[in-house]
Amino acid sequence: MIVDRLRMGTDGQGITTLVAFYKCPLKCKYCINHKCHFTDSNSKVSAIELYNSINIDQLYFFATGGGLTFGGGEPLLQASFILDVLELGAKNWHTTIETSLNVPYDKW
């Protein structure tokens, strides 16, 4: 996964942090993130490690109306991991998921 912080005007209002996952079931011709198809470059972190690294940005989220964006790749392939991060406290932030919905229904 890649964490891209302090983004403005990209994922809605305010300052946002993007968590981009690897793995995507699609091969779109005009894909803007070709790295999402690589699986050998995944960085492995736990939900608490990710939450702690993003938590330092929460002041920006509250001050600007921004928040957290999960993208990819296809983030819903990691749905249980995302739920774990949200349960740690990220559910208090504005959260967006950029998805193709090309995943099994139980991941929704």
Rank of each mutant, 00 (worst) to 15 (best):
83 L>F: 10
40 D>V: 15
88 L>M: 09
55 N>R: 08
68 L>C: 13
80 S>N: 14
61 F>N: 08
69 T>D: 14
78 Q>T: 05
4 D>Y: 08
50 L>G: 07
2 I>H: 07
8 M>T: 04
106 D>G: 02
32 I>E: 07
38 F>Q: 15
5 R>W: 01
54 I>E: 00
23 K>N: 14
99 T>Y: 02
70 F>I: 07
10 T>Y: 14
81 F>E: 10
88 L>I: 12
60 Y>D: 05
22 Y>W: 11
40 D>E: 15
50 L>E: 01
104 P>M: 00
92 N>M: 01
80 S>I: 02
84 D>N: 13
64 T>A: 07
93 W>D: 06
81 F>V: 01
95 T>C: 07
18 L>M: 10
61 F>A: 12
38 F>I: 15
7 R>D: 00
29 K>Q: 01
60 Y>Q: 01
87 E>L: 13
26 L>G: 01
48 I>M: 04
41 S>G: 05
4 D>L: 05
54 I>N: 09
53 S>P: 03
79 A>K: 06
107 K>N: 07
86 L>S: 05
97 I>Q: 13
73 G>Q: 03
61 F>P: 15
35 K>Q: 14
82 I>E: 13
34 H>R: 15
16 T>K: 09
15 I>C: 04
9 G>T: 11
13 Q>L: 04
101 L>T: 04
76 L>K: 12
96 T>I: 10
15 I>G: 01
14 G>R: 09
108 W>D: 06
89 G>C: 02
2 I>L: 12
58 Q>I: 03
61 F>K: 06
69 T>R: 01
20 A>T: 00
36 C>M: 10
43 S>E: 13
102 N>D: 02
22 Y>S: 05
19 V>C: 09
77 L>G: 13
90 A>K: 12
44 K>N: 01
97 I>P: 02
66 G>R: 09
18 L>P: 00
58 Q>M: 08
97 I>Y: 00
51 Y>C: 14
59 L>C: 09
85 V>T: 03
79 A>G: 08
26 L>W: 11
26 L>R: 14
99 T>L: 06
29 K>E: 02
25 P>I: 03
30 Y>Q: 11
42 N>K: 15
50 L>M: 14
50 L>V: 06
36 C>W: 05
89 G>S: 03
52 N>K: 15
6 L>S: 07
66 G>L: 11
45 V>K: 15
13 Q>D: 01
16 T>N: 07
60 Y>E: 09
26 L>Q: 09
91 K>I: 04
16 T>M: 08
27 K>P: 00
52 N>Y: 09
102 N>C: 02
16 T>Q: 05
27 K>H: 07
21 F>V: 05
2 I>S: 00
51 Y>H: 13
30 Y>K: 09
75 P>S: 11
31 C>Q: 12
44 K>D: 00
90 A>R: 06
108 W>P: 03
92 N>T: 02
67 G>P: 11
87 E>K: 15
54 I>L: 12
77 L>S: 11
104 P>I: 00
108 W>R: 04
90 A>H: 14
2 I>M: 04
88 L>W: 04
49 E>K: 12
28 C>P: 03
10 T>Q: 06
103 V>Q: 08
49 E>T: 13
44 K>W: 12
18 L>D: 03
55 N>D: 02
67 G>S: 06
77 L>D: 11
100 S>E: 04
8 M>N: 00
78 Q>A: 14
6 L>G: 03
23 K>M: 10
16 T>L: 02
72 G>M: 10
25 P>Q: 04
17 T>L: 11
82 I>P: 15
91 K>D: 06
50 L>P: 08
